[in-house]
Structure formats: C-alpha cells, structure tokens
Design a protein around this nucleic acid. Sequence first.
RNA 1: GGGUCAGUAGCUCAGUUGGUUAGAGCACCGUGUUGAUAACGCGGGGGUCAUAGGUUCGAUUCCUAUCUGACCCA
Length: 959
Amino acid sequence: MSDKPANKYPVNLLDTPFPMRGDLAKREPGFLKQWQNGKIYQQLRQVAKEQNRPKFILHDGPPYANGDIHIGHAMNKVLKDIILKSKSLAGFDAPYVPGWDCHGMPIEHQIEKLVKSDKDAIKANPGIHARIVEYRKTNGLDEKETHLPSGFIRELCREYAAIQVERQKVDFIRLGVLGDWDNPYLTMNFKTEADIVRTLGKIHDNGYLVKGQKPVHWCVDCGSALAEAEVEYEDKVSAAIDVGFQVLDMAALSAAFGGVNVGDQAAFAVIWTTTPWTLPANQAVSVNPEFTYDLIATEKGLLILVRELAEAALKRYNIDANEVIAQAKGSALNGLLLQHPFINRQVPVICGEHVTAEAGTGLVHTAPAHGLEDYQVGLKYKLPVDNPVANDGRYISSTEFFAGETVWKANPKVVALLEERGALLANKKLEHSYPHCWRHKTPLIFRATTQWFIGMDKVVGCETLRDKANRAVDATEFFPAWGRARLEAMIKNSPDWCVSRQRTWGVPMTFFIHKETAELHPRSVELLEQVAQRIEKEGIEAWFKLDAAELLGAEAAHYEKLKDTIDVWFDSGSTHFAVLKQRAELNHGDDNRPAADLYLEGSDQHRGWFQSSLKTACATLGQAPYKQLLTHGFVVDGKGMKMSKSKGNVVSPQDVINKMGADMLRLWTASTDYSGEVSISDEILKRTTDSYRRVRNTLRFLLANLSDFSAADVLPVNQLLTLDRYALVELANFQKNLTSFYAKYEFHLGVQEIHRYCADELGAFYLDIIKDRLYTMAAESHGRRSAQTTLWYITQALVRLLSPILSFTAHEAWETLNNDGNVFVDQWLDIPAVQDAAALQTAFALVREVRANAQKDIELQRAAGALGSSLQAEITITAQGDAYHALASLGDELKFIMITSQAVLHEGEAAIAVAASSAEKCERCWHYHPTVGTIAAHPTLCVRCDSNLHGSGETRQHA
RNA sequence: GGGUCAGUAGCUCAGUUGGUUAGAGCACCGUGUUGAUAACGCGGGGGUCAUAGGUUCGAUUCCUAUCUGACCCA
C-alpha cells in the first residue's frame, strides 16, 4: 500500500490489488467478458433449479426496437437488474428474459423513409436501402418507384427491427444487466407472432371481440385508411358556412333560457363548419357546458350563439338590429331537440369539452362518422355512427339528395340546398391547414370504417371486461400506492379498445369474413389455430400469402381474409401469454395466480403496457398478469426540466458509461427516489462519484487488512473480543436493514444505509479503533485474528449486499477475496449470532455517546494548540449509572475505544477532562506511554510493542 | 384546460398518529494525521421546510388556493 521505506520496527501494513480508483470505464468490459465466458446467468439458473428455489418472475416490458437507448431505458433496466439480483441473493429463482417490441408504425415509417430516399434515413441504414435499390433493379422497377409489395416491405421491417434490437442489446448488456441475452423474446419471433394471434383468438372465443365503426383518416385515391404519420398538413381553401338548426320545442327553449318569453318566432342553434359534405351525417350539435350562450332576437329569427363570438357572427350574417333577450350556460341547453336542416332527422344538443370559442359560433356540428372528437363525444351520448360515404368517397345509394356523388362535388350542392331551405346564414371562403395524403397530395376525409374492438362493457357471463379489470386492479399491489388510482381511472374512462389497424408491419387479424354479411366465419376459433400453426413455422407472412381455399375449401368463394393488422399495443399486451406461459423458466406453473410477480415500467405505461396487458389478461384469463406494479418517473435534468436536444441538457447513458463506468450509472439509479421524476446532471453525477469513492475505499481497506487472512483463520464467535462481537451485531443489523430496503424496492434508502454503515459505523468507529490491533499486534495473535475474523464477515456480507447495485465493483472485490464461484450465484451471508447481542448494543450506545463527547473536548484542546493527534491526549471520564458500568466493563482497554493514550474512569457526575500526555510517544504504536525509553535494547518502544515484537505479545479482551 | 405526482441545506435524501433549537451523507470551511494518503479522523458554518391563506394552544407534517416542474389526457 505504500512505497515509503519500511519502519525500523515493522507493523502489519498490507497491500491489496484492489486499487483506490476503480477505473471502471476501462475495466468493466473485462468483467463483463468474464460473466459471459463463465455463463454466469446460465449457471445461476442451474443452481436455482438444483436448490429448488421459489420463483420470482419480473416480466420485462419490451422497449420499442427503434433508436438507441436513452437514460430512461438505462434506469429502467438497472432497476430491474437490482431487483432481480437482490431477489436472487435473497434465495429466489429470479430469471430475466429481456424483450423487444418489434412490429408497428414507427419501424414501418423508417422503411417508408428509405423507400422515399430520405437522406438521413439512408445514412443511418445503408444496408437496407441497398436492398431496396437492388430490388427495383431486379424487378425492372423505376429507381424512384415507391410502391413496393407489402411482403417485401415487411421483410425490410423485420431486418430493420433486428438491427435495432442488436444495437440496443449491446448497450443494455454494458450496463451490467444479467439476463438471457442470447435468447431474448422478440414480438416478431414466429412463435410469439403465433401466440399473439392465439391470444386474439382466445379473446374472440370468450366473446369480447366486437365489430364497430370508427372514423379514420381516409384517402379516396388510395382507397384506404392512413396512419397519422402518413398525413401531411397543407393549406386548403374550404367553404366555411353558418347553418341554423331549428329548435323544435319552444317551451323547452324558454325553459333552458330561464323562462324567457320566446314569442312565436322560429329559433335556430347556429353551427359553423368548413366541411359542408359532412352534414348528411350530422347527429347532434355540441355546446361547451361551461360557456355562456346568448339567445338573440333578429330579423332572421331567434339565434343561439356563444357570447364571445355572437357579435362577429351577426356581422357575418349582415344582421344589424338585434337584441340579446336571454343568456344560458351551455349545460342548460343539453338535450334540446333540433331539426336537421335538410334531412328528416331530429338531433339533440349535447355537451362536449372539445367545443372552443376560438372561431365559429360556439356550437359545433357533430357527425360521429366524420370526426374523432365527434365520435368520442358521440360514444358518450350513444349517437349512431352512420356513415353515408363509401370507400371511393361517394355517398351510398341510400343518401338523400347526394347518392352517388363524391363528397368534393357535393360540397357546393349542400350549400345550395341549405340556401334553398333557408338554413344558410353565411357562406365564406376560409384558408386553413388541412390533412392531405402523403402519397397523392390530395385532401383526406375523415370517414368511419369498420374496425374491431375489445368491448369493455359487453356482458359476458355475468360481468363485463371492465368489471373484471376493476377487480384485477383491486388485487394488484402498487409501488407507489397512487398507481392504483391512476390505473383505476384509466380503466374507468377507457372506451372500447380499437385493436384493428390498417397497417403493413403488424400481426394480422387472422379471421375470415363473409363477403356479403361481413360476419366472422363460424369456425373462426378452429381456423385461427390452423393459421397460428403456420405462423409458428413461417411467421406472419404465412397469413398474407395464404390462399383462403387451402383452409376453407369450397367455402372460400364466400369468404375473404381480413386485411387488418393488430394494434401494436396488443402485441406487448399479450406477452404474459405469448412469452411467460411459453417459456418454462418464466412459468410459475399455476394458472390460478397472476403470470408475473412484477411489472416495472415508467409512469406513462399506466396508459400503455400496464393497461394493455391487464385487458388482454382479463379478457383471456379473468385476472391481472401481475401481482405487483412498480412505477418509476421520467428522467429530467438538474433543474427538473425535461431533456431535449434543443435545450442541450440531454445526458446519454453511453456518455456516462464511457466516462465514469456503468457502476456509476447504477449507483445514480439506486440513489434516487424514482417514484417521482428523477434528476440527472453533471453535479449530481459528481456527487454520485464522491459517494462511490467512499464505499470503494472502505472495501479497499477491508480487503487490504484481510490479505493475510483466509476462511481457515476465522475464529469462533465466542472467542472474539467484546468490540468485535459488537461489530458483528451491527453488521447483522446493517444487513437486516438493507435487505429490507431491497425487498421494499426502496433502493435510495438502501444506498443511504450503505453509506451510513461505511462512513459512520466502519470509518468513524470500528475500523478506526481496530487499526491499533491490526497494525501493532503480532500477525497471528488472537487480538488481531479476532479483528480480522470480524472484518472477514463484514467484507463477505458487504460484497454480497453491494452486488445488486455496484455489480462490477462487487465482482472485483469478490475476486480479490479469492472467493469461489460468483457473487451473483451466492446468497446473503449467514452472519453468526452473538449471544449477548442486546446487552452489547445497549452498552455500546452509552459508550459511543461518551466517546462523541470526548472527541468534542479533544477537539477543543487541539484548537487551543495543546495537542495534535487524539493519541496525544489522556482523558479522565466521570460517569454514573449504566454509562459507568458500560465503560467500566471495558477495563483498561477503554483507551483503545477512545483512541487516546490513557482513559481513566471515575464514578460520579458525568464529566470529561482532557490533558496532553506528558509521556513519550512510542515510535511504533504512537501511543504516549511512560515505558517508552525504559527498554534498553529498544529505547523508542513502549513495553506493549516490545512484547508484541520480541516477547509473548499482549492480550486483549475487549477492544 | 382536466387528472395524477412532486417541490425540506449547493447536491442526493430522512423526517414514524401535528409538539421543545428540522436530521444524514456528499460538497464547503477549519484542523489532525501521513500506517485507507488524489485516502482517513475530529470540529464547524449553511435551511423563511416552493408561496399565500386557513384549522389548531401549536404545522415541514392536516385543509384550500397559487407558483414551478413531470407524466397522462383534452
């Protein structure tokens, strides 16, 4: 440990290969190699099996296979790893199979970008782009051709996802996360794809899959639905018209406006719209319940307008003379019946929060078939979603006035008809931002289409899926507790889950639909299993290339394959079945309990994975897939602000690892209270490094002083000195505290406990005191071996206790100790019991209080210049009662506890006196002792050192 | 705009039915040691407990509002 010349009289100074500085960034990769070469994860599984340990299943929420990992991913994986390692050390069989979410829009979008020759995309994925170029060449396509077969697109998506998975995997492994990295689960694995399909089949079999209508972006030229990313917004000029809906019941109108006399004039609720063609689908007029509405008498009748916009509206209608005869809150108008301006239909006034007072009239034309907000508010009021517009953008034959017309040509005709009916109050042109198709650059329409839903309120058996989900939430344990309220609220407000998507890269909904009735084939469950078996072998492509006749025979003439894919949230939501149930190591083997013990994800997943998993599990098994849910917050910068490239406050895990090492990132993760948002910044990481050094140096001291000691030298507990037995009691106490923090997932309190133990318990107390014995007593003396026995237990326990958090450092210490095997395969140390534990704790609490006071008094003398080191002091302690007896029990060895050259005890009123020693300082042990100078052969030594070096050595009982 | 959560020393965190001068570690300052030495010991300074009201004999702790931030939704 030191390069300085040896003392004339040797002391037991030992060295250790465990360096003061970890140099983690450089050395961790080497440790990782050892874990991989030694197949530590596999070994751990084997041992767990042999020991028949109870299982603890943490199911990994699959990150999406796109883009490099960020600090949030890193934190999430580290938390999981800490939990699993601590569970394993606590005696559980805690496997970890990492997963990835591989289907879906974002990946498909990346491929689309490559197909469209986006420069950035090509730079990032040259290989896949080369395949596209090659494909065009081989198939004689134009080099700018963007219409490529969907089978080829899926192939590219699969390849892209695989590349992303490998990139992310490397970073995750580098964090020190132990898991089955060679066999992760991917939602695009053929078997998993098949099991996702089976999950859907089971839900259908259980009766929860229902067909419905929902508006989507629709391109008339494509003849298909578009995803949000395929929509481009461009300016467009539209007709903006004001339309009066006549009030049917004048008495109700009067009542709504506080009983005002409404006379015999006709009254109109006035709406404003930029899409006249949607009026045939009108089912309601929405008002904002909080707004105030005016009832205004004009020459065109009584008009209802929101107060803020009334003046502008009247101006638009060229109405000068008017009088506000009454006002009412929007909520008062709820339920008022109106006459549709040209169709024989009565429509209600309804309340919706989506109504604003920014433009128009404050009353909104509501056509559930043509707008998402309209659709959603329509769900609340159970309005029909009748859609009069067909795939080709033309009105269906039953549409009054406009049958067969395209919606764009119908626009002016609708306006003309309104004019004719006297319902048109204004007709202006408006330039506004409007959705367009990214391929055709033509305006899109919102159009209700047939979609498939998992029904939340359909009664199956005697209860709904919502009922089941509620019960499942009740049965779940939440960390922190507020997660329950959040998930409950989600379930309460969640509409039917629309699981169908019109996408290319997704698991297909493998159903056959009757061409006429659009009903599912009666043998759907059986057919679906046949399809699933094909998917197991060939992946989802098996469905897309399947000829219906292969399964249906002659019936195929009447059926077609459903073209929809499944919402990607369903993929990950099915993994409790598609992964946990399918892999023996992740299967509890008991269907009566939730599949997993724990799901652990960011708080955004209440709406995401926590919920999708809950719904699929309830719809298939009637229970939650997890026993416990643990949520962590998002990572923000030091000021609590979200990280963003533009702000320049992004901390990347790769940077932290390359500069400081993964253990620092792990320690940061463990130190923080993750239940809220989590801060990271240079200063925070700097502090993390500081606290790491404290722990590391403690380990270094321990390891150095054990370097001439091994398990064979361990003494039985009843032969240990008093102080050492007390240290064992405190060690057991520390282990109990820390393992309890691990069990409660309260790692930040655990880190504080680790720190308290290393700094207060060891650094400032126990280790400081036993240095005298370690250094000055004979190497193999009982007093020294007693201390080393204690250090051995402390180190063995500490290494294990640190390993879930400081995995690399613990591994390094484990090797330095020459321990067999691997720390992660071990369990918490069995710390030997101490018979007089309670008495020791009581006594030492008193002793330490006196010691603290003595240190203050010594400090006063030091400040006054009377002495330097505390060994230069001689103290006289006066105490009474229990304190006196506690101190007295240490006899002559009290001075070692106090680290003074002399400590005299008297019984009496509590007091401490400190004086500088008048004796000489022993060159070797640094104690000031009257015997220094009395030994002729060694005039600079005290008798103690002389005996330890040349005689039989001193004896210690207590300290 | 709505729902949920958070806001205690420069940093990370404690604070246990509301009860005397609000704690710890790190950082900072002073100091000792030079046998954990780019380490360790001892001592010290530092907080209007986000802000403003309210309940109470008394509130960091309970209630309300506001501000700031995060997540979800609109």
